[in-house]
Nucleic acid binder design. Sequence first.
DNA 1: TCTTTAGATTAGGCACATCTAATTCAGAAA
DNA 2: TTTCTGAATTAGATGTGCCTAATCTAAAGA
Lengths: 244, 244
Amino acid sequence: MKPHGKVEFVKVVTKSSTVEDYVKVIYAFTEWQDKAITSSQLAVRLGVANSSVSEMVRKLKEQGLVHHQPYSAIKLTERGTVLALAMVRRHRLLETYLMRELGYGWDEVHDEAELLEHAVSDKFIERMSSKLGHPQRDPHGDPIPAPDGTISLPDATLLSLLDAGHRGKITRISDDNPELLRYLAHQDITLDADIEVLGQRPFGGSLMVRIGSGTDTADFDVPEEVSSALWVESTHPHADCTLT
Amino acid sequence: MKPHGKVEFVKVVTKSSTVEDYVKVIYAFTEWQDKAITSSQLAVRLGVANSSVSEMVRKLKEQGLVHHQPYSAIKLTERGTVLALAMVRRHRLLETYLMRELGYGWDEVHDEAELLEHAVSDKFIERMSSKLGHPQRDPHGDPIPAPDGTISLPDATLLSLLDAGHRGKITRISDDNPELLRYLAHQDITLDADIEVLGQRPFGGSLMVRIGSGTDTADFDVPEEVSSALWVESTHPHADCTLT
DNA sequence: TCTTTAGATTAGGCACATCTAATTCAGAAA
DNA sequence: TTTCTGAATTAGATGTGCCTAATCTAAAGA
Ligand SMILES: [Mn+2]
Ligand SMILES: [Mn+2]
Ligand SMILES: [Mn+2]
Ligand SMILES: [Mn+2]
């Protein structure tokens, strides 16, 4: 007597904190540009060996969280995106909460949120969100997805890509370098500050910018490292440029 | 050329969340009575197999966190006690915070704290403590150890051990049965309520108690399951008993 | 004292997430 | 088209924490 049908064991999906971090990083990579992440880029961002990523990506695929053809880039499935957005919501709400309710500095929130995001319950997240008045963005200007996964990305451009004359508001600051955040805070370069690109020093040097508005302005030379961490939303359309 | 001295590799102690839970449970067992916990009692409380405990206790001993002779009870070392008290502080502060700041019910805080206690930083804990005004006990009446490990246990007795006539205040309610907590809250039996033992129903039946003071009192029959979850601090010394 | 037995420990394995080293592959360069 | 090369994958292993099954032991009972 042989079985005449195939027996399949459907693996119950356990979203470990490792899996949560993988999908979150895969998602984050495409948030501000549209190329999908590769195996080794993922390895660098997670701080693990390439081989660990290969192994794990196979498991993520098994669980229906990513699409992946060997030797090509890694993309989230619908389900993977849902999980990633849930984690991004958690992370950003936690960062916001830590600053507003527990007096953390904006350079201190990331690491704490990175661990807490895996430990708090949905109830905790929603209570926080209520208490904060359902904020739309985190302390670094990153948009906070709604509970249903809806997210609206502001129309911002990387400062380092802007031409002289451009004016706008700083709407996002990359949060992965705490030291940079401390530097910026010390210089009073904060979210929503008005900014104008004055020009670029020769031979690929620093970008010259003016921060502030009206009479209260200050000029800075920002090196590539900084200008590639700041996103600017234009206040005037392109036509308004004052080219010298 | 042979080495003429012994080379030892001292294991760097990594306090995993598993280790944290083991020492916490070992500590908790002796908080309200003085017998040390056995292997199988520990297994029940942690929800793991006996063999897992044997294995883990060996590792805890290796790390200097417990004293243990095979086939006998498990005791924390000085270092183990320090770690346990730190975890207890975390757990109880978190419970208090969840109730006071995020509107949790006292039956909902335990499970959330059980996970969060492993994920939050010391900074988080101390910020919470400040914000709460450095509370001395958690929502269930359990004392919160100070950052240095100091803890003062209230002089309370298990309700089920009290004789008729005893009066006092409820100062502690075991928090490991959420359903019981909901029942008590529904009956307005809360921390600091005045209580008087009226007597015991025959044949090992329920304990009859009076809750409240002055004109606002209510009588209850409390079954063993409940009376062994409530601790009472006497308001009148023993001499004041009214035996029938 | 000898036997029983409940509780504790060991043996042998598994799942997860990681590593280093060896191998394979896709696409660029010749 | 063939060769090369860096990226990606597989092979083989480790550490942690858990399991079931087998074995052992201390303390109680006959
Ligand atoms: Mn994380
Ligand atoms: Mn952020
Ligand atoms: Mn715990
Ligand atoms: Mn409690």
